[in-house]
């Protein structure tokens, strides 16, 4: 992984970043001060343009993903995890809605796993 010290501040990455375009500060914040990363790291769309245009080959994408590892995930992710724990599904959709959507696409109704499936998987040992 090419270190951010290789950055010559040419700004090519900023020019192509979709997140910068909508007012985020993904790459700039990051290269200027890796400790100042904010919610912007979660806005990276992984489009790979910064990686493609960097003249010195800094692995901005790699740095961004490494940063995500050390950040607390945004609230939305936490909510999704809680939903999975509660219902087994990350998105709030009822059996009825799900079957309607599936019927619209010509698919059979689906049988959802029991709501306590995740608890069973997490907390019961194979012998129980």
């Amino acid at each position: 992984m090419k270190h951010p010290a290789a950055c010559i501040q040419c700004g090519d990455c900023v020019e192509v970043c979709p997140v910068e375009k909508v007012g985020g500060h993904a790459i700039v914040t990051f290269l200027a001060d890796p400790d100042a990363a904010d919610y912007s790291v979660w806005l990276c769309t992984i489009c790979w343009r910064c990686h493609q245009v960097c003249p010195t080959g800094v692995d901005i994408y790699g740095l961004m993903m490494e940063r995500r590892r050390h950040e607390a995930a945004p609230g939305g992710y936490q909510t999704a995890f809680e939903r999975v724990l509660r219902s087994g599904l990350a998105l709030p959709i009822s059996q009825e809605e799900l079957d309607q959507v599936r019927a619209a696409w010509g698919l059979e109704p689906v049988e959802l796993p029991p709501a306590d499936l995740v608890h069973i998987l997490l907390h019961k040992s194979p012998s129980e």
Partner: peptide, 8 residues
Amino acid sequence: GCLLLRPH
């Protein structure tokens, strides 16, 4: 778009 082309 992106995924068809990058990383090259």
